[in-house]
Each structure stands twice: as C-alpha cells, then as structure tokens.
Amino acid sequence: MEKIAAYLEEGGRLLIGYLPKVALAGLVLWIGFKLVNRMTKGLALAMEKAGLSKSLIPFLTSLAGVSLKVLIVFSAAGLIGVELASFLAVLAAAGFAVGLALQGSLSNFAAGIIILLFKPYKVADWIEVDDKFGKVEEIQIFNTLMVTPGRKTLIIPNAQVVDNIVTNYSRKGYIRIELSVTMPYSESFPRVEQIIMEQLLSIPKVLEDPAPEVGIEAYDSHSIVVAVRPYVVPDDFWEVKFEVYRRIKAAFHSHNISVAYSEGVEMGKIGS
C-alpha cells in the first residue's frame, strides 16, 4: 500500500507539473494549425494571381502547410519537455532510408516541379517525347499523361521528359503537314502546282497565314516528287492530311494528270 501511495503521489506531482505545459502545448497546436490553414489559403490565392500552374498550386500549398505544421508540432513537443535532438536524429535517419528507397520517384518528383515551373508544354499541347507522340492530357507531379491519335494513354515519367528532347507541336499555334505526291516528267510543273494549290486553299482548315507551300522535292527514276506543305492548327492535323490526299487524287483524275508505274516505266491514268 505504501508503494501504491508513493506512486500516486509521484503521479500527482508529475501531473501538476506537466499539466500547464500540456495545456500550453495544446493551445500552441490549436492556434498554430488555425494560422497555417489561413496562411495556405492566402498563399494559394497569391500563386493563382501570379499565374502559376493550377497543377502546381495545390502541391505547393500542401507542402507549405505540412512543413509549417511539423514545425508547430516540434515547438509544442519542446514546450512539454521532449528531447528534440534525439527525435530529429531518428527522423533524419528514417528520411535518409526512405530517400534511398524512393530515389527514382524523387527524381520524377523533382522533374515534375521543373516542368510545372518552366512549362515546356501545357495541357492540350501536342508533343513528342522519346519518339512517343500525343496530346498532353494531364501533368502530374510524378508523370505526364499523353493521349495518342489512336486514343492510347501514355504515362511517361517526368524524369524521362526532362532527360530527353521534347518537341512541342503546339507552341507556335500551327504546324506544317509534310506530304509528297508524284508527277510525270512530261507534265508541266506550274500546272500541277496550280492544281494542288487550288485544292489546298479550298480546304477551310488549311491556314492562309503561313501560306501553303508546293515545290519540287526530288527527281527519282520514274517521276518528279512534289512536296506539299499546308499549315494547320495541331488539332486538325490528321483530318486535313487525309483531306489533302483525297482532294489531290480527285484533282489529278479530273485534270488527266498521269502517274508513272515502277514496272516497265509505263504511263498510266490515275483512277477516280
């Protein structure tokens, strides 16, 4: 009984000694968390007015909020009397181990920050990365999501984006379609050029500025290779490409433009 009474007395003494500190630490946590929530909301509004990416704002505000709350927890623990030096040493060791385990993810994370800050591309841009072509659907912290013209979703790690050459087809607002058609040596190039140019200018989605280009690209053993270069908005690329080929074929047929067949180098009429 004497031991129990001694334990109760010691417990009461500790409770009386620590109760004010615990109450103060709780008050610091409550007030501190309230202030951090208000600060993060103000920070989000400031970043939005500054024009930062909407994909980056939630991450930065969350990171700032967590960091400040961790500092407040450390301060509250110090008020109670917790030895912070040993606690921080254990936390640092754990962080080092986690960092080694997540080395690849951390590199993708750092690359994601670089992409969101410097904006080599944005959502809805058509880009090519490491021979992978598609439209940017979402820029995440660790990955970039792209959709190919065939409606396949590509999930590309951001570190791979930063380490490779990125071709942005949407940066200038237009893109050139590079096509080739053939004409016989006996045919007049100015006539063929005029026929092709008329077809290009009749397609509504072909841009007038920059103007379409038609020129002789090469001479092969059977025919002249003609380069056809209309400019379009990136979203219209495939539609216009197919339409240009369709209209040129129909125009060659209606104007009796011949083509050369590789077998025997005979001239033949092009079908409708």
Results as ranks from 00 to 15, higher is better:
residue 9 E to A: 10
residue 76 A to R: 10
residue 160 Q to K: 15
residue 223 S to I: 07
residue 256 N to T: 04
residue 262 S to E: 14
residue 130 D to G: 03
residue 230 P to R: 04
residue 195 I to T: 06
residue 271 G to A: 02
residue 38 R to M: 12
residue 131 D to Q: 12
residue 68 L to W: 06
residue 159 A to V: 13
residue 121 Y to I: 00
residue 89 A to V: 10
residue 123 V to H: 00
residue 119 K to L: 07
residue 36 V to P: 11
residue 169 Y to Q: 00
residue 167 T to P: 01
residue 68 L to I: 03
residue 263 E to L: 13
residue 35 L to F: 14
residue 167 T to N: 13
residue 13 R to P: 05
residue 228 V to T: 03
residue 46 A to E: 04
residue 261 Y to P: 00
residue 175 I to M: 07
residue 56 L to P: 06
residue 233 V to C: 02
residue 145 L to N: 01
residue 240 V to E: 01
residue 251 A to M: 01
residue 57 I to A: 13
residue 99 G to N: 08
residue 255 H to E: 14
residue 131 D to M: 07
residue 36 V to H: 02
residue 212 P to F: 06
residue 47 M to H: 02
residue 208 E to K: 12
residue 199 Q to E: 04
residue 174 Y to H: 15
residue 201 L to F: 01
residue 258 S to I: 10
residue 245 Y to M: 15
residue 64 A to G: 05
residue 222 H to P: 00
residue 81 G to M: 07
residue 75 S to R: 01
residue 64 A to N: 02
residue 226 V to P: 01
residue 41 K to N: 07
residue 47 M to S: 09
residue 151 R to I: 13
residue 145 L to M: 13
residue 210 P to S: 05
residue 89 A to S: 07
residue 166 V to E: 00
residue 238 W to N: 14
residue 64 A to C: 09
residue 58 P to R: 06
residue 220 D to A: 06
residue 154 L to H: 01
residue 214 V to T: 03
residue 203 I to L: 13
residue 20 P to D: 11
residue 205 K to N: 14
residue 169 Y to C: 01
residue 14 L to V: 04
residue 153 T to I: 15
residue 208 E to V: 04
residue 57 I to R: 08
residue 9 E to T: 12
residue 189 F to C: 09
residue 210 P to N: 07
residue 269 K to S: 14
residue 144 T to S: 05
residue 185 Y to F: 13
residue 196 I to V: 10
residue 18 Y to G: 09
residue 101 A to E: 08
residue 92 A to H: 02
residue 243 E to W: 02
residue 57 I to Q: 06
residue 14 L to C: 04
residue 17 G to S: 13
residue 101 A to F: 14
residue 253 H to F: 14
residue 213 E to I: 15
residue 136 V to M: 04
residue 173 G to N: 02
residue 269 K to Y: 07
residue 227 A to T: 08
residue 222 H to S: 12
residue 91 L to R: 05
residue 127 I to E: 06
residue 245 Y to K: 11
residue 47 M to K: 03
residue 191 R to Y: 05
residue 15 L to W: 14
residue 8 L to T: 09
residue 134 G to Q: 02
residue 112 G to W: 12
residue 253 H to Q: 13
residue 5 A to S: 06
residue 123 V to I: 15
residue 85 A to G: 14
residue 156 I to A: 11
residue 88 L to G: 11
residue 29 L to A: 05
residue 32 G to V: 10
residue 134 G to T: 08
residue 50 A to S: 09
residue 113 I to V: 15
residue 134 G to I: 10
residue 272 S to Y: 14
residue 75 S to Y: 03
residue 240 V to I: 11
residue 252 F to V: 00
residue 73 V to C: 09
residue 165 I to K: 12
residue 60 L to R: 06
residue 129 V to S: 00
residue 56 L to K: 03
residue 144 T to I: 04
residue 65 G to K: 05
residue 240 V to H: 03
residue 251 A to T: 02
residue 61 T to C: 13
residue 5 A to C: 01
residue 207 L to V: 12
residue 147 V to Q: 14
residue 113 I to W: 07
residue 12 G to D: 09
residue 193 E to F: 12
residue 62 S to Q: 08
residue 268 G to W: 03
residue 229 R to C: 07
residue 235 D to Y: 09
residue 185 Y to I: 00
residue 67 S to G: 02
residue 58 P to T: 09
residue 257 I to G: 00
residue 43 L to P: 06
residue 17 G to W: 03
residue 11 G to E: 04
